Simulated assay, not measured.
Amino acid sequence: MEQHLLVFKEVAETNNITLSAKNLHMSQSSISLQIQSLENEYGVRFFDRTNKGVTLTKEGEIFYARIRSILDILTSLKEEMSVRAKDQKRLNQRRLIYLGATLTIGEYILPNIMAYLSKTYPDVDFKVKISNTESIAQDVSEKKMHIALIGGTAPQHKDLKVENFWNDELVVVIPHFHPWASKNSITLAELPNERLVTREEGSGTRKVMEMALKERGFDLNQLNVIMELESIQAIKQVVSAGLGISIISSLTVSSECDRKIFKTLKIQDALVYRPFSILTNTQTTQTKDEHVLINLLHDHELLSDILRKNYNDLEKHASEVRLTHPAVSNRKGQIHGQEQWQ
């Protein structure tokens, strides 16, 4: 139908079938047949034919005015769809890293890593699931994701490969106005003297803390636990209000320490560390993009630098990396092409 309308418009504007045929690279008979087909379809004559050419009838003038609008709309629609098709093609060319993370890593490590990688490799997108260790490990074992980052002890599974990439220190966190603020460390014997705010039973942070204290012969019943919370952010709010102290990851309070909201203390006779690990499936091949992430996690110097920076610093740092290392070094891996999920 659109072809018929284009033919009609051309003939209406040239008033000459021969010239229209030349302009449209069609035969005169084909032009005449398409005009006749339109006239038969609408039951009216659109042109008066003479030896000098053709002219629009009254009905033809009405039809011409309408089809000009219709063709303008179709042209505009084609342009819009063309733009959308190009955008979709560009989106389809973007690569995806789908990974899982436990709470502390997902909230306090991954944001900086993703900000850095997004600025360094702008064609890479992330889809992140933040959940408990068991759920994340199950997804990796079932090949629903290729990489997971967990804190604490990794589940035992024949197809899971576990690689340590960071040792996270658990520290005593106090408000900056606390009487202990002049200290850099405390002893285990001092812990029962303070009200303690902890993560809920079953959390990785809570398990690591209790295991470390037990290994040093400390009786957990001596702890004056006044509150158990399921959120690190909630614990920080309670501690900043002076309602108690906590033992949580040093990473989660680094910015508050910089702003003199919190002070962190070590436990002299019970330094508490927990491993942060990369989980992958031994039966799954990682994409090149995923290898970039894994290489970054194993580069302790680079990772430390990334975790110390805020978002604006990361953007500047990533730009410097692109300028000084246009061909990405082995240290960071490379990203090429589109990879398929296994």
Rank of each mutant, 00 (worst) to 15 (best):
H178Q: 13
S304C: 09
K266A: 13
N312L: 12
S76W: 00
V239M: 07
E301K: 05
H336P: 03
S29C: 09
G337M: 02
L265E: 03
R95W: 00
S27F: 04
K161C: 14
I278G: 01
W341T: 08
L74S: 10
L33W: 00
L191G: 03
G333S: 01
L149M: 09
I247S: 10
G43Y: 05
R90Y: 11
N92F: 01
D48N: 09
D289F: 00
A21W: 04
I109N: 00
E190T: 09
S30C: 06
E2V: 15
Q342H: 09
S69A: 07
L223K: 02
K129D: 11
S20G: 14
K207T: 09
N51I: 13
H300S: 15
K129E: 12
Q233C: 03
W166N: 10
V162A: 15
S249N: 12
L77K: 08
I73M: 13
A148I: 00
I247H: 06
K161D: 14
R68S: 12
D299T: 01
H300F: 07
S304A: 14
V7S: 13
I267G: 06
N221F: 08
Q342C: 04
Y98W: 01
L307C: 12
S250D: 15
V253W: 04
S254L: 07
F46G: 06
T102I: 02
N51S: 12
D305P: 05
I335R: 00
K78S: 13
I294A: 07
D219A: 01
D258V: 10
R216C: 05
F8Y: 14
E200H: 14
M227S: 15
T153W: 05
V328S: 01
Q338D: 02
H157M: 08
P179E: 15
Q156S: 14
S135A: 15
N330F: 01
N310H: 04
T14W: 10
S118K: 02
I245M: 13
D159G: 08
E107G: 02
F8N: 09
C257D: 12
A318R: 00
F47L: 04
A137V: 09
A212C: 07
E290C: 03
R206I: 03
A115K: 01
E61A: 06
V197E: 12
R90E: 10
L302N: 04
Q28P: 12
E107W: 01
L243Q: 14
E230L: 11
Y108S: 00
I17V: 14
V128Q: 02
E201S: 06
L196K: 06
Y311E: 10
G60F: 02
V239W: 04
M1F: 11
N184M: 12
T102F: 01
I105Q: 00
Y121A: 06
F63D: 01
S231D: 13
L77T: 09
M145S: 02
V321I: 05
V172G: 11
W180I: 07
K263N: 03
Q286F: 02
